[in-house]
């Protein structure tokens, strides 16, 4: 069982890593998947900070609706 204080250090670092990967990836679909991973980790961090309402909203809107809208928008573009 990992101690809670260690999780409070690991998860923000993973959030920053995912946010950097969004900017680094050249492939747009990979960047959007990384954004979804960042949203899920952010929801986990909200849950660990004892805010389950915000965690449900973040997991519902950030990890699914936003990703679906981004992928629909990417599908409408074409590669030159």
């Amino acid at each position: 069982m990992i101690e809670l204080g260690v999780l409070h250090i690991i998860i923000p670092i993973l959030i920053v890593v995912c946010a950097l990967l969004v900017a680094i990836f050249k492939d747009l679909i990979a960047a959007v998947i990384s954004l979804a991973a960042m949203s899920l980790l952010l929801a986990l961090e909200f849950y660990l900070l004892q805010a389950p309402d915000v965690a449900i909203a973040e997991a519902g809107v950030g990890a699914t609706i936003t990703v679906a809208i981004y992928i629909l928008a990417i599908r409408a573009t074409r590669r030159e």
């Binding site: 309402d53 519902g60 679906a68």
Partner: peptide, 29 residues
């Protein structure tokens, strides 16, 4: 469930609506 039990458990109208809309997104995909 999140919508109906919004006054007892964590959640509420906005969160439950977002979860149902993500189900609709799954159907569309």
């Amino acid at each position: 469930y999140i919508i109906m039990h919004g006054h007892l458990t964590p959640g509420g109208g906005f969160q439950g609506g977002a979860v149902v809309a993500s189900g609709v997104a799954l159907l569309i995909v």
